[in-house]
Design a protein around this nucleic acid. Structure first.
Length: 403
RNA sequence: GUGAGAUUAGCUCAGUUGGUUAGAGUACUGGUUUGUGGUACCGGUGGUCGCGGGUUCGAGUCCCGUAUCUCACCCCA
């Protein structure tokens, strides 16, 4: 038997119903916020991700589905959504055109990782990107949009907030942190020693308890912000307070992708195992420049759809549509015609085999149909059809042409 | 890439110290005098016990390998 690849799932009933419901809710809300749909290719040039996500991240370092195509191009399946959207933004010269561009997207992402709960090799994200707005109100809007989506889906969450600084204050902070780490080189774990070289900020969210004890003494990002970062972060907190969005400041919250600056946020759930981040995002004002575009402020987020699936509270489903059946072989053609007619406006399924009434009712019930319509000997003789409303338990017999 | 646990019917799981023909529930399907569903009763289909080796007179059961899944680490949505 040929099986699907490790970490790659088929999505079918009943999960696909939750999946579609999520997309319906998320796209409706995004549209209400003034965002429009963008779709970018699943396959991009490898260099795009190296330059945007950053070579220091594990995503680029060891998790990409990378290969050489038949035209000798070095390509890979997208491991995240922002890079492609930014490329499209620049390629369409919207950076030079100026103005505000607000987009949402959704689709599969690929990372070659060891699968576990809430982590797949092919997974789906819903994401938002906003270009051209440097006002921190836009950051707040992003957070409120995620909160709206999660609330609408009945999902409980915790919001963690941090500021990563910008090109003025971040490098200085990084130097002082490295300095701090150098003094404690012997005490920190092997992973942190590695992170000190590759991406020092990442030591802050190390899960090693001894490391965390040491880092309590470490210089804090938030205490070293420059004036503009500081005032933006204060403003953001005020906006969230005014809109009743509760949050926790987490000075150790570090986003995994290199392109973030200033606002960083993460929505977490304590109900889905150790992969607890259900949505993450932040500001990335420098990324467009990194990819050869004209400097443009930008902010965005992504939601991991699979991680939400089991948390979604679905609206109660009610009976819907029609079931058609015949009790006599001679009535089958009539019932097929009736079904075809009904399908022009409503959902209708038909049973091809003649059965007694009881079995037809069972069949209709199993399909969760609202109406069970049957033609038996009596109905066949006077050109009528018997209809039962399975919810109200009412029944009637009508002329076929009145159906 | 590292570590731990699992894999028996479509699904959820039993299966004794290794011993005849591998079970249950559920689902599916048919019937309970061809006119009333979700709840009853009876029957039926359905298994190369993940796959490949080994030990043994004999393996679902013990050993080795392998694949996949799960959980955790790393990392991230």
């Amino acid at each position: 038997m040929i099986q699907s690849l490790r970490g790659m799932n088929d999505i079918l009933s009943p999960d696909n119903e939750r999946f579609e419901y999520f997309l319906k809710v998320a796209t409706t809300i995004a549209t209400n916020y003034g965002f429009s749909y963008i779709e970018t290719p699943l396959l991009e040039e490898t260099a795009l991700f190296k330059r945007s996500v950053g070579e220091s991240s594990d995503i680029v370092g060891k998790e990409m589905y990378q290969f050489i195509d038949k035209g000798e191009n070095d390509v890979c399946l997208r491991p995240e959504g922002t890079a492609g959207v930014v490329r499209a933004f620049i390629q369409k010269k919207l950076d030079k055109a100026g103005g505000i561009h607000r987009w949402f997207y959704h689709g599969p992402m690929f990372r070659y990782e060891r699968p576990q709960k809430g982590r797949l090799r092919e997974f789906h994200q819903f994401g938002i990107e906003s270009f051209g707005v440097d006002n921190v109100y836009e950051d707040a809007s992003m957070i409120m949009m995620v909160a709206d989506i999660l609330t609408k889906l009945g999902i409980g969450y915790k919001l963690e907030l941090n500021s990563l600084g910008d090109q003025n204050c971040m490098p200085e902070y990084r130097d002082s942190l490295v300095n701090f780490l150098n003094k404690r080189e012997d005490a920190i774990c092997e992973d942190c020693k590695r992170r000190k070289i590759t991406n020092p900020i990442r030591v802050l969210d190390c899960k090693n308890r001894e490391c965390q004890t040491i880092y309590k003494e470490a210089p804090k990002l938030l205490e070293n912000l420059c004036e503009s970062c500081e005032s933006d972060f204060t403003k953001l907190k005020t906006i969230l307070d005014e809109n009743n969005i509760s949050y926790e400041i987490d000075t150790h919250l570090v986003r995994g992708l290199d392109y973030y600056s200033k606002t960083a946020f993460e929505f977490v759930s304590d109900e889905i195992g150790s992969q607890s981040a259900i949505a993450g995002g932040g500001r990335y004002d420098r990324l467009i420049e990194f990819l050869d575009g004209k400097a443009t402020p930008a902010v965005g987020f992504a939601i991991g759809i699979e991680r939400l699936l089991e948390l979604i509270k679905m609206p109660e489903s009610s009976r819907e549509g029609w079931y058609f059946g015949a009790m006599d072989e001679n009535a089958i053609t009539t019932i097929l015609k009736a079904t075809a007619q009904k399908r022009k406006s409503e959902k209708a399924v038909v049973e091809y085999k003649p059965k007694n009434l009881k079995n037809h009712l069972k069949g209709a019930d199993k399909l969760n149909a609202l109406y069970c319509a049957v033609i038996g000997e009596n109905e066949l003789n006077d050109g009528t059809i018997w209809i039962k409303n399975l919810e109200e338990k009412t029944e009637r017999t009508v002329k076929l042409e009145e159906l």
